[in-house]
């Protein structure tokens, strides 16, 4: 139970029924992420501002207006074969000899937290703590074995830029391919094409096949495409060091601008210094479990203590 929200009046707007949307809502405290605070039968949305409710049927439904991301008891179990079996011959032999053994381990277990809109959450942890697995789950690439996850907006993962690039394609063709993969529409990409090229500073190289690009050029193009829309949730793995010093400055400025506009950020890092300067809340993962969460000062102090 959380004591802060008990004292807060819950603003209940939209008293009418949005057909089909009635559900039991478990509320979780917005301020500390613990909960459930109370359960209510609601046919309306809890809104702090006055605006239209999200349409029914979307994943946004269950999230409050102020929540960008909610992770509930998420666990990811990997099943590893003791020996790597990846062909039918070995599989059949092992199956007949009853030698198919697996060992299971949880890469993530019982992870629950909540990120409010505009909040910047740092994820701390040593190698193998489950940070990347968590990011993959949030980005939707990996489905959690248990638990649920709710996202309240477009997520742009700036993880490995240009992972979906086709080497035979020219830069221009890749803009459309990669853009399509991120879920943008053709018209939108056509409209923004000039802007993307201008930002990437590739100039005439845009019509050259990607295989002739340097890695910095690829990263620049990837960054320019991924950040052409302003995402609601941005996932950053370490601070980006894209391209040369000049472009790095430009990309950092673009990210800073997004920060200033109040987008939600998930930031993964080993560096406490970076997390401290960028985030306002943090969690620590250790061996797949979340061992602490709270404001950045407290948590980073804990983390410093732990890695000593």
């Amino acid at each position: 139970m959380c004591f802060i929200s008990r004292e807060l009046p819950v603003k209940r707007s939209f008293p009418h029924n949005f057909g089909g949307c009635t559900r039991i809502r478990r509320e979780i405290c917005r301020f500390c992420g613990t909960g459930p605070v109370r359960e209510t039968l609601s046919s309306a949305f809890f809104l702090t501002g006055i605006s239209e409710p999200p349409p029914c049927g979307g994943i946004e439904d269950a999230l409050g207006k102020n929540t960008a991301l909610r992770v509930d008891n998420v666990g990811v179990k990997f099943r590893m074969a003791n020996e790597h079996v990846d062909n039918i011959k070995d599989y059949a032999i092992k199956l007949l000899k009853h030698e198919l053994r697996y060992h299971e381990f949880w890469a993530l277990k019982d992870i629950s937290f909540q990120v409010d809109k505009g909040e910047r959450l740092g994820v701390l942890g040593l190698n193998g703590a489950g940070k990347s697995t968590l990011l993959k789950v949030i980005a939707g690439v990996l489905k959690p074995t248990e638990g649920t996850l709710q996202r309240g907006g477009k997520i742009v993962p700036l993880l490995e830029l240009g992972a979906g690039f086709e080497n035979q394609y020219t830069g221009k063709e890749n803009v459309f391919l990669y853009g399509a993969m991120l879920g943008y529409k053709r018209e939108f990409l056509k409209e923004k094409y000039e802007e993307i090229v201008a930002f990437s500073e590739l100039g005439d190289f845009i019509n050259v096949p990607l295989k002739n690009y340097s890695s910095g050029m690829k990263a620049r193009l990837g960054f320019s495409i991924a950040t052409i829309v302003e995402p609601e949730i941005l996932i950053l793995d370490e601070v980006l060091s894209v391209g040369d010093a000049k472009f790095r400055k430009k990309s950092e400025k673009k990210i800073k601008d997004m920060f200033d506009k109040g987008i939600t950020v998930l930031f993964v890092s080993h560096s406490i210094g970076q997390v401290r300067s960028l985030c306002d809340r943090a969690i620590i993962l250790e061996k797949g479990r979340m061992i602490a969460q709270g404001d950045v000062a407290t948590v980073s102090a804990l983390y410093e203590e732990a890695i000593k």
Binding site: G57, Y169, L177, A180, R186
Partner: peptide
């Protein structure tokens, strides 16, 4: 319903992927 909505959203991707295979 969500399947159709999702398909519509990614229609352009399907076109792009198909085009890529043919072009390359």
């Amino acid at each position: 319903k969500t399947f159709i909505a999702n398909f519509k959203k990614y229609q352009f991707l399907l076109a792009e992927l198909t085009k890529k295979d043919v072009k390359l």
